[in-house]
């Protein structure tokens, strides 16, 4: 009988292979394309809508909200974070485990073998990179679009102050980072669901449907005791980066709440991964 030493495939190779797989998938690319287009269309749209209003010597609400290089990325992020970014995140997470299981490819990875905990880590990495990449790309395109449309002196906050370019960029970075952490929370929950089923569509339906239900619940005043437990509760506070001085309180609460969701999501995913039959 020979004694065999455990051998593992290099983790970097696994991560690279995972990313290559994700970014080769047509629907990932379609969604990224839409996300890239959205800020440009949004920026141009505000200008077009605004033109007749400005002709009358007035300013439209849209222009006040999104007509500058500071607000455009934040408003774009705040609108994409309620649907498109969670959609992309959930899509990636649903393909990561449920999708691979339904194609029979999860077996292949487990047989190679990639240990279940390692596999979960690789999948979590893939989901995290996709959501972070999508958010950064969207914010960057929106920031540049805003600068082109309204110029570098247009970084006006809700409070009426005008920020220097570096400050404005810093605010956009904070907003982007914050959105990324929120998306990681969604990704963690989606991966947990993804580990529990072989039907990727079920993951999509339950997570996107769940977010929709959260939205409904948070509008029911009787359930206000429940509201602080909902991940969506602090999503409005992303616009706090547009206030000057910047109130950190709600952003911090939202950040910590997302961290709790991440811990819960990955714990459930881990428990499911080590017990599931593939």
């Amino acid at each position: 009988m020979t004694t065999l030493a455990p051998v593992r495939a290099p983790i970097l190779r696994l991560l690279r292979s995972e990313l290559r797989w994700i970014y080769r998938r047509p629907r990932t690319l379609i969604l990224l394309g839409l996300l890239a287009l959205y800020p440009i269309l949004f920026g141009i749209g505000t200008q077009v809508v605004d033109a007749p209003v400005r002709a009358n010597g007035d300013q439209s609400v849209v222009a006040a909200v999104a007509g500058n290089a500071m607000m455009l990325p934040v408003i774009v992020l705040s609108t994409t974070m309620v649907f498109f970014l969670p959609l992309g995140t959930t899509m990636t997470a649903s393909d990561a485990l449920a999708g691979e299981a339904s194609h029979g490819t999860l077996r292949g990875l487990l047989l190679a073998p990639v240990s279940r905990i390692r596999l979960l880590a690789v999948k979590a990495f893939g989901v995290a990179v996709v959501s972070a990449g999508a958010a950064v790309m969207t914010a960057l395109i929106a920031f540049v679009t805003g600068l082109i449309i309204a110029g570098p002196d247009s970084l006006v906050t809700f409070s009426g102050t005008t920020l220097p370019l570096a400050d404005g960029l810093w605010r956009v970075v904070v907003a982007t980072g914050w959105v990324i952490v929120q998306m990681w929370a969604i990704g963690a929950i989606a991966l947990a669901v993804s580990a529990a089923t072989e039907h990727p569509l079920l993951v999509m339906a339950s997570v996107i449907g769940g977010l929709f239900v959260f939205g409904l619940l948070s509008s029911i005043p009787v359930l206000d005791w429940l509201h602080p437990f909902l991940i969506t509760e602090s999503w409005d506070s992303i616009v706090d980066v547009l206030r000057d001085p910047m109130p950190w309180e709600n952003l911090t609460t939202g950040f910590l709440r997302a961290l709790c969701y991440i811990v819960i999501g990955y714990s459930l995913a881990l428990a499911r991964m080590v017990t599931k039959d593939s």
């Binding site: 602080p228 437990f229 709440r257 709790c260 811990v263 819960i264 990955y266 881990l270």
Partner: peptide
């Protein structure tokens, strides 16, 4: 670890 994680997350919330 997973059990502790879920507990910690819920307590955190």
């Amino acid at each position: 670890v997973a059990g502790a994680g879920v507990l910690a997350g819920v307590v955190g919330l």
